[in-house]
Amino acid sequence: MQYVVEAKGLCKYYGAVRAVDGVDLKVPKGTVFGIFGHNGAGKTTLISILAGLTLPTRGKALVLGYDVVRESVEIRKRIGLLPEGFGFYDNLSALDNLVYLAELDGMDRNTAKKRALEVLEIVGLKEYAENKVGTFSRGMKQRLGIAQAILKDPDLIILDEPTVGIDPYGATKIRQLIVTIAKGGKTVIISTHLLYEIGQICTHAAIMRMGKVIMEGSLEELTKAIRDAYGYKYEIEVFDRSTLDLIKKDIENINGVDEIIINDLRIVVNSRYDIIKEIAKVLKDLRIEIKTFREIPPSWEQIYTILYEKSGGEVSV
């Protein structure tokens, strides 16, 4: 199986609201797949459908080869889900919460207890196993949430906004945890409205707006597609300010250069095409000592802004 998720024309309507509107999506196996979109874009509804919690109004989706409508229980047997707005039984300990959920995953009590302790260790909460969840901080609860998602050692883990509402340190810990889990060969789908999160932990992404996927692919593919359509940016840093004019003069002659900005010891070139080789040749020919020369990839904020404007929305990033 090449793809763990294959969705075609997936729709979910709540009355007149089109929460998910004709989504086509393919999630390759073994990837960390980010679903990005701002609040109300349809991420949570899409995840609920993929996790077999909500039935689609129209369309088809296979998760791990199982149909989301007819075989939702088979899907839930095989995936780990961290839903948005989840909670634990505050009056129970972390261990008791996990044992209960593991039993609902189909494990017998002894296996459940053993596995619960294992996952508590993975998420760094083993020493708090006997503490009541009501005493946990938000970050600890979120880590416990990830622990419950990996209880059955699933092939596919779906995390809906795993770092929302967490302090920066806690969020970093959770991102590290997700990367660790993904390194074990699992496929992880993560929904987020934090753009930098996509760049930090994802290998692939889909960008959603108003219930539709407006772009999808690997991060390289997405970045390249954006750059091909909207331009490239290069930065050259020198040791001697006087050499900048020489560089500027020669680079201006390269076909495709739109704009050159000089800033202190740096020169920034905006181009419609990939002209990295041409710039490198110019610098080599000039024999000027260069401190740094690099291509500046568009930030995820820029990519999103461009896509959002292109798809007719207002820019809110």
Binding site: G87, L104, D105
Partner: peptide, 14 residues
């Protein structure tokens, strides 16, 4: 309200 129902229903439970 607690959000525990989501965790329970995320499992192969009818």
């Amino acid at each position: 309200e607690r959000g525990t129902l989501k965790l329970v229903l995320a499992r192969p439970v009818y």
